[in-house]
Computed example of a mutant assay.
Amino acid sequence: MDPGLVTGSEDVGVLATSAGAPLVYWLLGGADPAAFEGTTSVEEIRARVAAQPANHSPLFAPVISPTLDLGTAALTAATRTWLPATG
């Protein structure tokens, strides 16, 4: 799902552009699915997403499992697809 506009302070894009390096910036969800129980519309989901602490918040506490496993698997698959095979 496209998260839409999000605030950010990451300057990694500026650094990558300056270095002429390719860059992909992923946002991996880590919210507890229970926080979304009972939602029936996109608007309700967006409101609950907006209420979640952001990654720079001291309240940020992603659900470790399955977030870490799924995030690692997704990033590994993307890396293996993007990088040439070596053998």
Rank of each mutant, 00 (worst) to 15 (best):
M1D: 07
D2V: 07
P3A: 13
P3N: 12
G4K: 02
G4H: 03
L5T: 15
L5P: 10
V6H: 15
V6T: 15
V6W: 15
T7K: 14
T7M: 14
G8V: 09
S9H: 13
E10W: 05
D11K: 06
D11I: 09
V12Y: 11
G13W: 11
V14T: 12
V14I: 14
V14A: 13
V14C: 03
L15M: 14
L15P: 02
A16K: 04
A16D: 02
T17W: 12
S18I: 08
A19K: 07
A21W: 06
A21K: 11
A21V: 14
P22E: 04
V24I: 14
V24M: 13
V24W: 05
V24L: 14
V24G: 06
V24Y: 10
Y25A: 10
Y25F: 12
W26C: 15
W26D: 06
L27I: 10
L27Y: 07
L28P: 02
G29Y: 02
G29F: 03
G30W: 02
G30R: 03
G30A: 04
A31D: 08
A31Q: 10
A31H: 08
D32E: 06
P33L: 13
A34R: 13
A35G: 01
A35M: 07
A35C: 09
F36W: 02
F36N: 03
E37S: 12
G38H: 04
T39G: 01
T39F: 00
T40F: 00
T40S: 00
S41I: 02
V42I: 11
V42Y: 08
V42E: 10
E43I: 02
E43K: 05
E43D: 10
E43N: 07
E44C: 00
E44K: 00
I45Y: 00
R46A: 03
A47P: 01
A47M: 02
A47W: 01
R48N: 04
R48I: 05
V49D: 01
A50H: 05
Q52Y: 05
Q52P: 00
P53L: 04
P53I: 04
P53E: 06
P53S: 00
A54T: 12
A54S: 13
A54G: 09
N55Y: 09
H56S: 10
S57I: 08
L59I: 02
F60P: 00
A61G: 12
A61S: 15
A61L: 15
P62W: 01
V63F: 00
V63I: 11
V63D: 02
I64P: 09
I64D: 14
S65M: 01
S65Y: 04
P66M: 10
P66D: 05
T67R: 00
T67F: 01
T67S: 07
L68F: 11
L68D: 11
D69Y: 08
L70T: 13
G71H: 09
T72H: 08
A73D: 08
A73E: 11
A73T: 07
A73Y: 03
A73K: 09
A74E: 14
L75K: 01
A78Y: 08
T79R: 08
R80H: 10
R80N: 13
T81Q: 10
L83G: 03
P84H: 06
P84A: 11
A85Y: 00
A85H: 06
A85N: 03
T86C: 08
T86H: 12
G87E: 14
G87W: 12
